[in-house]
Write a protein that binds this DNA or RNA. Structure first.
Lengths: 330, 330
DNA sequence: GTGAAAGCGCTAACAA
DNA sequence: TTGTTAGCGCTTTCAC
């Protein structure tokens, strides 16, 4: 069948231990023996069984990755970052999607508590306390990405939504806009709130009035953005710029604007958030805030790997910077 | 530390074997003992170590998934199908992206030959013979999704691109179009060729002339589609319909049409292929061919699972049907 | 119906 | 420098 360490040992006339030393680059083996064994390994096409190694040693070389939905481009690009970084550590990924199903989330905790992975990277929106407690009890290292954890003891990689919201708004202000509308996503979503906070701060900082009539809700959906924009553009207080809490809504706003005969960006500037694929496909292409998804993945991996190594990094929250992608709408 | 089967055995005053029987729903344990052990397992919060189980038994409960790029929506949705289906078998996924790097592909084969997974699902474009031979030698069950395997002995889940191309073209013909253009993707890509073949067949079947001037190349890129469409629309033989080998090119064509003042679909019908997210976001929304990504994932999982179970399904190639999504452009 | 013991392939003390 | 040996946590004959 498959060739094992025993076969190599036999073929090389050494013990399994010696082969193991060679495999793991441990000292205590003469250069000659090492070379010889290495040769035999190549020749016999031997690959150590990671499962056995995992049982005997500690590491299994696998990171668990918990995400709500893989078809969400935002998550997909983070995964790409995670994957790349994990590979650098010679790790691979065990993927688990929860589809925002808390039952599933619970299952995942159990699943991963069976020695399958060395560490966990988790992206998820709703995090009940029990989930966290269970996770902590397992003793398996984990890091959250982009989630609003109250618990200060938890390692998190997160984007500074507030700052990004501030910058987007500031950008519009500096372009000369005075009547800047904001379209909310889900009102209670933490990221939406932070973005809104940034918007408010910018207005205040630049001594612009915060007007309720310029603040609408769009629910993070395209249609919501469309409707909110329609209301805005038909109102007495016609804004000259709209900052939507995400790209989908910005896209909706764009449709509304063109239907109502507003030229973008001449009559109306629009700025979104996320930089989804469609943002650059649309005409005119959407100016938006782009999140450093690759970097988020990388940082998260670095963190778990440190935790796996038994380190206890000082900083619990890692804030990453967004960037403003200037395109055609603002 | 963590509780093992030994602890359970001790607590229940039985042997490890008995606990194992209970865990695996094997006969030979009295109802009473079974109940008692089950109780203790719950109570002590015990989860069997899959790694150890993998070593001892055969299954590790993991499927390897090899894909070029997770941020490609097409693959992402297939993954979703795979994930769901795998979960039904109590399996999880070990994700590996190759980024179309054949070096990486080779590594992946090695990686998975180390007992990490029970089976493999592979999506990739370029498949050199060596890769396949190596894979076969490993003896690990594998299934390809949507790849052009010459090797008849290999299990593949694939979409009937030719038929889909035929249907798209037929749809345009039945809508009264006579001058139907085709925009090639990568000329040598198997899926592109199949789609083109379908286009040709439909024209021939409906006794329409196959005109070289109506056949352009777009390289599967948005810009390529744009340029190809411009050429077409500025040519003497102005087509009334365009069938693009993928959505990106169709989107480019759409831009070209609107720039040149063609009303879609009144002056020009456009049909794409893939049904990417942007297809439904654009205005007018793109009529296109949608691939049964979820189903592809499911079928592939069913196949590997059968192979893992030692079955040898008769049919090597599983053809899945596409569907025409009628929207605003044709 | 239940238990003892071997072994899966590897690592890591400890000996030699 | 190399070998011996005892596990890692589980499954699975084979006995009882």
């Amino acid at each position: 069948m498959t060739v094992t360490i025993k076969d190599i040992a036999k073929a090389a006339n050494v013990s399994k231990a010696t082969v193991s030393y060679v495999l793991n680059d441990k000292p205590g083996v003469s250069k000659k023996t090492r070379q010889r064994i290495l040769g035999i390994i190549k020749e016999m096409n031997y690959y150590p069984n990671v499962v056995a190694r995992g049982l005997a040693g500690k590491r299994i070389g696998m990171l668990g990755l918990v995400i709500p939905d893989i078809t969400d481009m935002f998550y997909a690009s983070i995964i790409r970052g995670v994957e790349q970084a994990a590979n650098n550590f010679n790790y691979t990924l065990n993927l688990c999607t929860t589809h925002a199903d808390s039952q599933k989330e619970r299952e995942v905790v159990d699943l991963f508590s069976s020695g399958r992975v060395d560490g966990l990277i988790i992206m998820t929106y709703h995090l009940d306390k029990d989930y966290l407690t269970a996770l902590k009890k397992k003793g398996i290292p984990f890091v959250f990405i982009g989630s609003p954890i109250e618990d200060e003891s938890i390692y998190t990689v997160i984007v500074d939504n507030e700052k990004a919201g501030y910058r987007a708004t500031e950008y519009l202000i500096k372009a000369g806009h005075q009547k800047i509308a904001f379209i909310h996503g889900a009102r209670d979503a933490w990221d939406n709130q932070d973005r809104f906070q940034g918007y408010c701060d910018a207005l205040i900082n630049y001594r612009l009035p915060l007007q309720q009539e310029l603040i609408k809700s769009g629910d993070f959906q395209r249609l919501g953005g469309y409707q909110a924009a329609r209301e805005l553009l038909c109102s007495a207080l016609k804004p000259t710029a709209i900052f939507a809490a995400n790209d989908q809504m910005a896209l909706g706003a764009l449709t509304a604007a063109s239907e109502l005969g507003f030229k973008v960006p001449a009559d109306l500037a629009i700025i979104g958030f996320d930089d989804i694929e469609a943002a650059s496909l649309i005409e005119p292409a959407l100016t938006t805030i782009s999140q450093p998804t690759m970097e988020m993945g990388e940082k998260a991996v670095e963190l778990v790997m440190a935790l796996i190594d038994g380190e206890k990094p000082e900083r619990r929250k890692t804030f990453l910077q967004t960037s403003l992608v200037r395109r055609g709408t603002a």
